[in-house]
Computed example of a mutant assay.
Amino acid sequence: MFTLHLAGSEVRALRMDGDRLCIEFSAACVAREAADVQASGQDRHEMGYLKPLSLWLDGVQWHPQEQTASLTDCFGAVAQGQVRIDGQAIAALRLPLAERGVIDLTLSMQARDTWCCTARQLRCDIPDDARFIASMAC
């Protein structure tokens, strides 16, 4: 089981097809949950990157007043990401993921560009060829 953290992820590209948005990550920052649990009852996890990975949003409506860049300019490192589902802030997204409702997504890139949208559905499947690469950060 993986948990996606938007901050620290690397966006390769954003693609629109009608009202459907695909966020392609070149490296998605994730926590991989260990199969075993410590005696204290706390879950153990390992931070790293999952690649390839894509996040899909359906029924997308943009918030141009909050945009600082075009879609073609939104790539690179994510400094901060926020997801709200029906008004509730979600700190990290458990994968695989399929959510319906009012989805608000804001991504702020390290290059200082920001974009925001609202969608009706959020989905992320882990592809069969996905690889987990452990982080070497201390």
Score class of each variant (00 low, 15 high):
E10G: 07
T72K: 04
A134C: 00
R20V: 03
Q110K: 14
F2P: 06
F75I: 10
P52Q: 07
S40Q: 06
E10W: 10
I90P: 05
S108H: 05
Q38R: 11
R120I: 02
S26Y: 04
D73M: 07
L122E: 04
K51A: 15
A77G: 14
I85E: 11
P96E: 06
D58F: 05
L57R: 05
K51E: 13
V37E: 14
R123G: 07
E66V: 01
T72N: 09
S135T: 09
A130F: 10
D113S: 12
Q61H: 03
M16G: 08
R84H: 05
L50I: 03
E24K: 06
R44E: 09
R44S: 14
I133C: 10
D58T: 11
G8R: 01
D129Q: 15
L53I: 04
I85H: 11
A35L: 07
A77Q: 12
P127H: 06
D125F: 01
Q67A: 11
A28H: 10
W115F: 15
M16Q: 11
V30P: 06
G18L: 08
A28M: 01
A31M: 02
R44V: 09
I90K: 03
P96K: 02
P96Q: 05
L105T: 07
A7R: 04
A137G: 04
W115G: 06
L4V: 00
G41W: 01
G81E: 00
R84P: 00
A91E: 08
